[in-house]
Amino acid sequence: MIAHIFEDRCTACQACVSACPTHVLDAGPDGAPRIARLDQCQTCFLCELHCEADAIYVGPDQRQPEAISPEAILASGHLGRLRHDHGWDREPEPGSTGHLHDFWQLGPLLREGAEIAARRYSERQASDRA
C-alpha cells in the first residue's frame, strides 16, 4: 500500500491523484496530495510510474499498511526504481529497439517454465511408479 509521499520532492502536480485508479488520494490544496482512502489501495504501483518527481513510495504488502520510515525508503534505493525500470524517466538509447527490447521473450519463457514443471512432474510420477 502507498506508504509515504515525500513532500520535499513533491511538485504538487497532483498527477498521482488523477492516475490512481482507485481514488486513494485527495489533492492537497497547496501542496502534496493526502492519502485519504488507504483501504482502497490495491498496491498496483502505478502512482509511482506516473510521478515524475519520484516522490511517492508504495510498500509491498497489499493486505495492510506497513510502517517504514522515509529514511529507510531513501536508503533502500527503491524510490523511483520502478519508473526507471519501465524507462519512463528517459528516452531509449539511440539505435536500440527501445525499452521493450526484451518483451517478446515473455511468451517463450512462460512456456519454458511450464515445460520445466511438466517434465519434473512426469519424472516424479515415473519414479513413484518404479
Binding site: 510498500g59 509491498p60 504488502d61 533502500s76 525500470d85 519501465h86 527490447h101 521473450q105 515473455l106
Partner: peptide, 17 residues
C-alpha cells in the same frame, strides 16, 4: 536476469520485502 526488463513490477514486491 531479464525478468525486471520484461515485467518491472514482478520483482518489486519481493525486493521491497
Amino acid at each position: 536476469p531479464i525478468l525486471r526488463r520484461i515485467q518491472p513490477a514482478s520483482p518489486t514486491p519481493f525486493e521491497r520485502r
